[in-house]
């Protein structure tokens, strides 16, 4: 009995003292869904570098979820030092609704504050039984497409806009035709998860759907997880340049006294070391040399930008994803 008590006490003390490392600085990075593996690697590299340079131990806590959901959580008071979300609008919202950082945040770091980019690709089952090659194949009768909810997921908004851009910019395309195409596409969607990762799980683990509209990085990761046996990636004839931006949340870092390390953390994402890690985790690095070194993994294809097709994120959000916007209109009639 006594021994049992002692061992229970030991177990309890182990359990309750786990977090007592000598952490000098703690950052909270609130990120979107598919960056789980990326920031695990980047955080370790940054912590090592910061220790060598400044001598401080930095611990970076992560929170992941749908980009819109994460943005909302920061607005509601989730104490993020940095936000690394899927698209600029979600950080704009933090600026507009909670005024935690200036509206000009995107000009503060190079290349629209996006150290890495990605795009939207198709993940299909091995052998591509539906012969999916390009966007129009996604509306074949009977095919089912998995993509998350554009209202809550950043990746889903990029996917939606990529499909729209294709249809609007195709020969003879216009706004109405694009709307009809995207509406048709969403009639083939059997599941609408709240985040990109949930959608990948649905497609990969649960075997739902014939095509997953996915971030390029997420598709590569799913491929890697399955050992390349079950799926393959299809690159459409064109897609969209997805820019997931990063920002320091000014009011929070000033309150925490973590501005210096937070800014260094984001600048670190642009260094060759970090860019190499980003490429390894299937994000397209901004560094052209490193991108070229990984060209086998990142085939080049024409990529529309949000500015050229949709006039920027604020407008795209307004037209397509606001209450009663295009997406709601497409969904109103029901399946």
């Amino acid at each position: 009995m006594k021994r049992l008590v002692i061992s229970l006490a030991v177990a309890a003390s182990v359990l309750f003292t786990g977090a007592a490392e000598a952490a000098n600085v703690t950052l909270l990075n609130v990120s979107y869904d598919p960056t789980r593996e990326l920031y695990k690697d980047l955080n370790a590299a940054f912590a090592a570098q910061w220790k060598a340079k400044a001598g401080d131990v930095v611990t970076i806590n992560m929170s992941h979820g749908g980009s819109g959901a994460q943005s909302r959580a920061i607005i509601d008071g989730l104490d993020a030092d940095v936000a690394t979300l899927a698209l600029a609008y979600d950080i704009d919202a933090i600026s507009q609704k909670a005024n935690l950082l200036p509206a000009s945040w995107q000009k503060r770091l190079p290349q629209n504050s996006t150290p890495y980019t990605s795009t939207i690709v198709f993940l299909v089952r091995k052998g591509n039984p539906w012969h999916v090659k390009d966007w129009p194949d996604l509306v074949k009768p009977g095919i089912s497409v998995v993509t998350p909810n554009p209202k809550t997921s950043g990746g889903a908004r990029w996917s939606y806009l990529a499909a729209w851009a294709y249809a609007e910019k195709a020969p003879g395309g216009n706004f109405e035709k694009a709307k009809a195409f995207v509406a048709n596409l969403y009639h083939h969607v059997p599941v609408l998860d709240t985040g990109a990762r949930g959608a990948t799980t649905t497609f990969a683990q649960r075997g739902i759907g014939d095509v997953l509209l996915s971030w390029e990085n997420e598709a590569h990761l799913a491929l890697q997880e399955a050992g390349g046996e079950k799926y393959q990636i299809v690159y459409p004839s064109n897609s969209i340049l997805a820019e997931p931006p990063v920002a320091v949340i000014d009011k929070n870092v000033d309150r925490h006294g973590t501005r210096k390390v937070a800014e260094a953390y984001l600048q670190f994402l642009y260094t060759p070391q970090a860019q190499e890690i980003e490429a390894k985790d299937f994000y397209r690095p901004r560094d052209q040399a490193i991108l070229a070194a990984h060209h086998a993994q990142f085939p080049s294809l024409p990529l529309y930008t949000i500015d050229e097709v949709f006039g920027g994120w604020t407008k795209a959000q307004q037209v397509h994803f606001s209450d009663g916007g295009m997406f709601d209109q497409i969904y109103k009639p029901g399946p």
Partner: peptide, 23 residues
Amino acid sequence: AGNLPMVSEITPLLIIIKLQEYD
């Protein structure tokens, strides 16, 4: 559930989604 709007989206989930949409 699959969480498809109009088909398999339950009310509590809709509350969460509305919350996540700033609504």
